[in-house]
């Protein structure tokens, strides 16, 4: 379990994180999303014990992460910007990790190297960016971490490898109750694997919810009524967060339980009524206060 409470971090005059809370349940996959500069990487660098917070706590299984070797032994981290020792091969890097991590699984390392088809004796510095990412993933997963922190893990990977990466992650979550926090801009893939989502904005946690709950709570609605009065009656009492009219068809975004919305609209006897859940990408755009064009694209 990962718990962050009241986390603050200031870089000179810039408030990067502000009173941030975050909770990741054990054995779940948590998706951290946010626009560029929202504080995702800063949060991750606190979660991995790299940065010391100005205030607040960052704990895993009830222990502070910062400067805690016990926790770091159980922690796997794939950063956005990778780092390997110059002129090291994947095999040599594996030997270094083996000396550091108590849970290192040499069999898994060799199996994964074969599975991903990487040259174990090839110099990491000569690997492509995608290959380096795979190499880091292999090294990290061979440590059999209890907590896995991934910062843009599939950036630069082809679809086949991406699928393979997620399979390893999901399998470890299922088999070992590994707790995962992943930051990515690929919201479609996040939507497919995440149990919970945190949306970060301006260094603050804007929304932190179970993904299914999040998606079932906001809907896009298209409806047409016999009269304007019927329309007004249908949406009265609902949490309409966006509304516009195109001819006689109303386009709305409504927050609330699906059943409540259906009940209210049907009570007004609509000519047309269509209700769809928002995708994670659409929720994100909407919650981030996207421009009118962005909202239009959601409603289209």
């Amino acid at each position: 379990m990962i718990n962050v409470k009241g986390l603050c971090k200031k870089f000179d005059d810039f408030q990067a994180l502000n009173n941030l809370d975050l909770n990741v349940q054990q054995g779940s996959i948590y998706g951290l999303i946010g626009v560029n500069g929202s504080g995702k990487t800063t949060l991750i660098r606190h979660l991995t014990g790299i940065l010391k917070s100005d205030c607040g706590t960052v704990q895993m299984d009830g222990q502070d992460v910062y400067d805690n070797i016990d926790i770091k032994q159980r922690l796997g981290y794939i950063p956005d910007e990778l780092f390997f020792f110059g002129s090291y091969t994947l095999k040599a890097m594996g030997a270094f990790y083996k000396g550091l991590y108590a849970n290192w699984d040499q069999d898994r390392f060799e199996a994964m190297v074969d599975d991903f088809g990487l040259p174990a004796r090839g110099k990491l510095s000569r690997f492509s960016k995608g290959m380096q990412k795979q190499a880091q993933f292999i090294l990290t997963m061979s440590c059999r971490p209890d907590f896995l922190i991934l910062d843009e893990p599939i950036d630069g990977l082809d679809p086949i490898v991406r699928k393979k990466v997620w399979k390893y992650v999901v399998d470890d979550v299922a088999e070992r109750q590994m707790t995962v926090l992943v930051s990515s801009h690929n919201l479609k893939e996040m939507e497919g694997i995440c149990d919970a989502i945190g949306i970060l904005s301006g260094g603050e946690m804007k929304i932190e919810r179970d993904l299914d709950e999040l998606k079932s709570d906001i809907h896009k609605v298209q409806a047409a009524f016999h009269s304007a009065e019927d329309a007004e009656r249908a949406f009265k009492g609902l949490n309409v967060v966006h509304r516009e009219k195109n001819g006689s068809v109303e386009h709305l975004i409504i927050r609330g339980p699906r059943e409540d919305v259906e009940q209210a609209v049907y009570a007004a006897d609509p000519i047309i009524f269509d209700m769809l859940p928002l995708s994670l990408e659409e929720v994100f755009i909407f919650e981030m206060g996207g421009e009118n064009d962005d909202i239009q694209s959601i409603l289209a």
């Binding site: 991995t48 014990g49 790299i50 070797i69 770091k72 981290y77 910007e81 780092f83 550091l100 991590y101």
Partner: peptide
């Protein structure tokens, strides 16, 4: 030298070392 770049400083300090060690 690992201290002088953001990525290497991050990776080394995320590994199971205390700052002291």
């Amino acid at each position: 030298s690992y201290l002088q770049k953001s990525n290497s400083a991050g990776v080394m300090h995320a590994m199971p070392f205390s700052r002291a060690s």
